[in-house]
Design a protein around this nucleic acid. Structure first.
Length: 956
DNA sequence: GCTGGCTGCCC
DNA sequence: ATTCTGC
DNA sequence: GCAGAATGGGCAGCCAGC
């Protein structure tokens, strides 16, 4: 079996001499001997267990299954304890109890690492140096000699070249990096990145102190170091380093792979490192469970939005998170594991690129003394790490945090510095290394197990059934039998009871473009309700609901579940729907906020049917699915369950869409979703948005939503790629009479990198963020060192405070009643101010002085307008046309009707939106604050007494 | 038993 | 959720 | 155009500490 040479992600090169017949292969990439057919891949004794007969079967919960007592590994642990006369409480899956309280306590360390001897050392050879106990255990290491991995972070916010050259030198001198997080290179100089890559012999052996002690002999033996980035693979020594004799993959595979992945920005290189890792596991004939644990641990963060964890399929456990806070758990564990004080950690943090690296530096400083008590480094295995992390997530009740930190301490105690750094990043749910499970790890897995498997196919299979194990089983099957991966993956289908990845809509920013880009003429314009997405699996009186991210939410809405159970009868269906809170008495407009606090009195707005008549109907066109939904499912009598409001249009219905958008907004919806009526329910990958659905939100369309002119009053130092800049930034309203600056919202979205760099320098001086690191800041143009400016009203504790003076335009989707922000506090609620939903920076307003910024009373007025949005819209619309359902059939009025938008104040309205039933429409013009108040005909509905500026059809 | 802070999960 | 950026 | 990073408001649930 040959690997195609033209494959972008080719396999690592293997030994080119057959171990059986000693024929030298002509093709160095061959996996099987040309003469005798023997495998050229390195072998270990362990045989992969038989695969399940079919991949299309319901998942059994193998991930949480404990190793059985007759497992050879477990047996050897037990016998070891008997030999030692130790109590048998310490088993690998239960490290939390009786864990060491201090790392230098010899006895505890000893028992903690007692598992290590069960890992048989490989037979003596040159390669075994790595595992030898250090001969000079108490030797102190110097930081700069200890670090082998070059510091690869290039966090240069500076745009001038001199500064960058300086940084390069500093970087080389310090060599602080242990586990480089992703490169953030502001400079375009590619050669720098390349140089870094070429001198990164990635760190399977040489990333840690304890390795370093092995010194010269090791270095000599590392003529061909294992290099995850450059496809070099030396099989003779490799496998013993990666996989234990029992076939367990060491966690160091994860740590090294992630270090390699984060050391480059190139997606291909990242992918190659991942493919290599899985190729090794395949060479070692690892079992599916090892692949699975490895895959999850390479990308253990559920998604960057929420930061939750995923160590097994989402639907298996309703609680995905581990409940590990930095301050409550992780920090304590680091201090215990390194024996350092809080202030030492804080100091280390200043030199490191992130907290994980800081902790690893401290551990590295500890040197090898911690191994002296009989422990062996690098014996952590992936399944063990995964099981312990899952266990952390299950710990609750009084004292949970200290139990968690003890368990973590014991894991850290057996980790090398680099492993510890990645464990910490895992616990923090902040890997920041440029890969995700669905888009990088799964395709790499496929590439390693079957290079002919197209990425698209695995991703789609995983989206149909988001269960890594299922995909691995299929790929292993195709790998074993040399089968066609595509046909095997096609067997992984949507399964009732297992949530599938919901279809997502692409964002559209103008109606014209949206309609033009559609490939089909028949379009459904559906209201986009403001609630929570729900996928409902219902069979014979039992409902299970899943969220957009596939967590189970059945218990969140008991009343709704009860209604479904009693109404849907003897069916078996999967519905796609939105849960909304519509009866928001007295909370006008706050539909979403109402939903999050209410659990009853919510209704279900259904818009799709995915399973019917005992089969998946995703491949049917939308109009067929809707027909079935309307005819077969929704004739039920319940005020809580109904169909999403929609109209059918064609591609030339610009004006109708515009009007429908108005209706939707008036009905407290977020906007519209335009759907091609002949499209399938596309499940092409997790997170992939389909073009057959297009969402039109009111705030995407300029001029349909408020924007405010706010004053930046403070900010914080960013993290990751923004760590050299100030981000986020706290914005406030300004009241001229009282000179009060009341906080409204933090903003972090909408700023370009260029803007950040300029603003940070403007605040902190030419040294930028470095000034704060070097404690070299004084009051500058914009910076106030000792607290907020006079008049600032906020509960926020900013790192930096600014002198007020700048005015920036900020746009948002909605105004919310806020428990934290202070602007307009007391007007609508004694203890609540106003804030913004989805705030983003639009532009600077250098033309505006502080006095012209939005005031808290203006802000309050915007909120009032929003609250009465539905009323206002209805008034205008009902003046224009009837709202009946047969509206679309009635001929359009020949008389133009217009919406006039106005702005309060002296200046002429900066913009307006003309809404015209004739084909000709003026493009929407920018508008800072908008209210629909009038029709040209003279029917005027005012929200408030305001001066109106009416612009006629001919005026520009 | 209450409150404040942290975490996870919605948008 | 939004937005920006490198690939 | 994809994929990923950084981080928005705000709620409930949970735990720690008073």
């Amino acid at each position: 079996k040959k690997i195609p040479k033209n494959s972008l992600l080719s396999m690592p090169s293997y030994s080119s001499t057959c171990p059986k017949c000693t024929l030298i292969q002509s093709d160095p990439m061959a996996c099987l001997c040309e003469l005798c057919g023997a495998s050229l891949l390195p072998q270990v004794a362990k045989k992969r267990r038989p695969l399940p007969p079919s991949t299309n079967i319901a998942r059994t919960q193998t991930t949480t299954k404990k190793r059985k007592a007759n497992d050879p590994k477990q047996r050897s642990i037990l016998s070891f304890f008997r030999k030692q006369g130790e109590p048998m409480q310490m088993v690998s899956s239960d490290l939390s109890e009786g864990a060491s309280t201090h790392p230098f306590d010899g006895k505890d360390i000893h028992s903690e690492s007692a598992i290590a001897p069960t890992q048989h050392l490989p037979p003596a050879s040159d390669d075994d140096q790595d595992f030898h106990a250090p001969t000079q255990p108490f030797q102190e290491e110097h930081e700069n000699t200890a670090a082998v991995a070059p510091a690869t972070q290039l966090y240069n916010s500076d745009t001038d070249d001199d500064q960058n050259e300086h940084d390069v030198k500093t970087k080389a001198d310090l060599k602080l990096s242990i586990a480089p997080t992703q490169l953030y290179d502001d400079n375009d100089d590619k050669s720098k990145t390349e140089a870094n890559l070429s001198i990164t012999p990635t760190q399977l052996y040489n990333d840690d102190d304890d390795d370093k002690l092995i010194t010269d002999a090791t270095v000599i033996n590392q003529e061909e170091p294992m290099d995850l980035l450059h496809d070099k693979f030396e099989s003779r020594r490799g496998l013993q380093q990666l996989v234990s004799d029992e076939g367990s993959v060491y966690y160091r595979v994860i740590a090294s792979t992630l270090s390699a992945v984060s050391s480059t920005r190139s997606r291909l290189s990242k992918e190659r490192a991942l493919v290599n890792a899985f190729s090794w596991l395949n060479s070692a004939q690892c079992e599916a469970e090892e692949f699975e644990a490895t895959a999850y641990l390479l990308a253990p963060v559920k998604d960057s939005q929420t930061g939750g964890h995923r160590l097994q399929p989402d639907f298996i456990s309703p609680e995905g998170g581990l409940g590990l806070g930095w301050r409550s758990v992780i920090e304590q564990a680091i201090l215990d594991a390194t024996g350092c004080s809080r202030s030492e950690l804080t100091n280390a943090r200043k030199k490191a690129s992130d907290s994980a690296e800081a902790a690893a530096m401290l551990l590295k400083r500890l040197g090898t003394r911690r191994w002296c008590f009989g422990g062996k480094p690098r014996t952590l295995t992936v399944t063990e790490v995964r099981d312990n992390l899952l266990k952390l997530g299950l710990m609750n009740g009084p004292g949970a945090n200290s139990r968690k930190s003890k368990l973590l301490t014991s894991l850290f105690g057996r980790a090398t510095p680099n492993e510890m750094a990645w464990l910490i990043r895992t616990c923090n749910a902040h890997m920041s290394c440029g890969i995700s499970l669905e888009a990088s790890v799964i395709p790499a897995l496929a590439q390693a197990l079957n290079p002919r498997c197209p990425t698209q196919e695995v991703r789609a299979a995983y989206a149909r059934r988001p269960d890594v194990r299922c995909v691995i089983d299929a790929l292993l099957q195709s790998n074993n039998n040399n089968d066609d991966a595509i046909s095997i993956l096609k067997n992984i289908g949507v399964s009732f009871g297992i949530p599938l990845q919901p279809m997502l809509a692409t964002a559209g920013n103008s109606i014209q473009h949206a309609l033009r880009d559609f490939g089909s003429d028949q379009i459904l314009a559906e209201h986009k309700y403001d609630g929570q997405r729900a996928q409902i699996h219902y069979a014979d009186g039992t409902t299970t609901m899943y969220s957009r991210k596939l967590d189970e939410i059945t218990n969140k809405y008991p009343q709704l579940v009860h209604i479904l159970n009693s109404k849907l009868g003897n069916k078996c269906i999967i519905l796609d729907a939105e849960i909304v809170a519509e009866n928001t008495d007295g909370e006008g407009g706050q539909v979403f906020q109402a939903l999050t606090s209410k659990r009853d009195d919510v209704s279900l707005v259904v818009f799709d049917l995915l399973w019917f008549d005992n089969r998946c109907i995703c491949d049917l066109p939308l109009f067929e699915r809707r027909r079935l939904l309307i005819e077969e499912v929704l004739p039920i009598e319940s005020s809580s369950i109904r169909l999403a409001k929609s109209i059918q249009i064609d591609r030339n219905s610009l004006a109708i869409v515009q009007k429908e958008l108005m209706h939707a907004v008036a009905a407290n919806c977020e906007g519209l979703v335009l759907k091609q009526l002949d499209s399938k329910y596309e499940i092409s990958g997790v997170g992939i948005r389909s073009k057959a659905w297009l969402k039109l939100k009111k705030d995407y369309i300029e001029g349909m939503v408020d924007s405010l002119d706010l004053v930046p009053i403070g900010g914080w130092r960013g993290s990751g790629r923004k760590s050299n800049w100030i981000s986020p930034i706290l914005m406030a309203t300004y009241d001229q009479e009282t000179q009060e600056l009341a906080c409204v919202s933090r903003v972090m979205s909408g700023f370009s990198d260029e803007f950040y760099a300029a603003f940070t320098k403007r605040v902190l001086g030419p040294k930028g963020i470095k000034a704060t690191i070097e404690n070299d800041i004084s009051d500058l143009n914009l910076l106030i060192r000792n607290g907020p400016a006079p008049g600032v009203n906020t509960s926020e504790n900013c790192e930096f405070w600014f002198k007020p003076g700048l005015v920036w335009e900020i746009r948002a989707a909605d105004i919310t009643l806020s428990p934290t922000h202070r602007s307009a506090m007391g007007i609508f609620h004694a203890k609540r101010g106003l804030s913004l939903r989805f705030p983003r920076f639009i532009r600077e307003r250098p033309d505006k002085r502080l006095e012209q910024a939005t005031s808290s009373s203006q802000f309050a007025n915007f909120y009032r307008q929003q609250q009465s949005r539905g009323d206002t819209m209805t008034l205008s619309i009902s003046n224009a046309k009837p709202l009946d359902d047969d509206e679309k059939e009635t001929p359009l009025s020949s008389k133009p009707k217009r919406r006039i938008l106005h702005e309060d104040g002296e200046q002429v309205a900066r913009s307006l939106l003309v809404y015209d039933n004739d084909a000709e429409l003026s493009p929407p013009l920018p508008l800072p604050s908008s209210t629909v108040v009038a029709e040209e005909d003279g029917d005027v509905g005012c929200v408030e007494q305001r001066r109106l500026i009416l612009l006629g059809a001919d005026e520009s």
